[in-house]
């Protein structure tokens, strides 16, 4: 029942998102649109809205997987060094194959993100002091380490400013033909749906999952693969969006509990809705310019996270 409400909200916001822009296009005149108006729709507006929805879904699901696998509600791409790893991957592409297509960026970003996630899980696992707060602290520091490596090389190649700004997620550059990599999020969401419970079991530890007859390693790697692929695809096309993967799963878990199969669709749709709203706000607030979405989400998300942190206890 509630899922229907969410879906309606999603559709409504998507339509709203389609009709915001410098060029005024009205839905009422849909039958009298000129070729130019159709072109704007299909080349720019539609890809943007689709990218927003896919990113929203992708990041919130990634956050959810990571939280399940570490059994820690405060772990997410932002607090586990994942975003920084993707950034390092992009830097590596720029250095080694400067004029490359985005597919190379994706491959590099994916490889490094995957590696970083494995290391992070290993660290989280070896921490004796399994305080719910301590693991994200280490994760954020881990991100700092990766960042210091990135800066080290960026400084050598004199591209510090470029590197610094990749962090900001931005949808304004999305056009037909340059964002399709993001569709990779779709199969991952489906996969996650079927593996949801297994990810939870993995989070209980190696012995526990073996006891239940699960192949610990392969499921662990599958989970990390899903996360790294989606985050890299999003980082390459849009940039990074902090806190999204953290707050959406947390809010959904507060509202609807922790039965993954049930809450997964809510998490996915809410992620998309939240991103659409932030994007619309960002586009209207200094119209006809826009505030990058990484900034709006970063601000709202950071504040929401602080509230979540403080009401814990």
């Amino acid at each position: 029942m509630r899922i229907l409400t969410l879906l309606i909200a999603l559709v409504f916001l998507s339509i709203l998102s389609l009709f915001i822009g410098v060029k005024e296009i009205s839905i009422v005149d849909i039958f009298s649109w000129t070729d130019k108006e159709w072109l704007i729709m299909t080349i720019s507006r539609l890809p943007r809205t689709l990218a927003l929805i896919l990113t929203g879904i992708g990041i919130s699901i990634c956050g959810l997987i990571m939280q399940q696998m570490t059994q820690n509600k405060f772990v997410s791409p932002t607090t586990a060094g994942t975003l920084e790893a993707a950034k390092l991957g992009i830097l590596a592409t720029l250095i080694f194959i400067p004029q490359s297509a985005s597919i190379y960026k994706l491959i590099f970003a994916f490889a490094i993100t995957f590696l970083a996630s494995i290391i992070f899980l290993k660290i989280a696992d070896s921490i004796k002091h399994k305080s719910i707060i301590f693991i994200p602290v280490v994760g954020l520091l881990f991100g700092g380490v990766i960042n210091s490596i990135t800066t080290f090389f960026a400084f050598q190649f004199n591209i510090v400013q470029d590197v610094g700004t990749w962090l900001i997620g931005d949808f304004s550059g999305i056009l037909q033909g340059n964002y399709e990599v993001i569709y990779i999020c779709l199969p991952i969401v489906v996969l996650t749906y079927f593996y949801a419970n297994k990810f939870t079991v993995i989070g209980m530890g190696e012995n526990f999952s073996k006891n239940l007859g699960l192949n610990y390693r392969s499921i662990l790697h599958l989970g990390l693969l899903c996360v790294s692929l989606s985050i890299s695809a999003i980082a390459v096309t849009i940039g990074t969006i902090p806190f999204l993967g953290l707050i959406i799963p947390n809010i959904i878990s507060l509202l609807y509990g922790d039965n993954l199969r049930q809450t997964l669709p809510y998490t996915a749709i809410s992620g998309a809705i939240f991103l659409l709203i932030c994007d619309i706000v960002g586009r209207l607030i200094i119209f006809p310019f826009e505030v990058p979405i990484g900034m709006t989400v970063g601000l709202i998300g950071g504040i929401v996270f602080l509230i979540l942190l403080l009401r814990k206890k």
């Binding site: 970063g298 950071g302 504040i303």
Partner: peptide, 12 residues
């Protein structure tokens, strides 16, 4: 992280 977001935006 929040401040860094704002910082990065301004740097952009």
């Amino acid at each position: 992280t929040l401040f860094h977001t704002i910082t990065s935006f301004l740097q952009l």
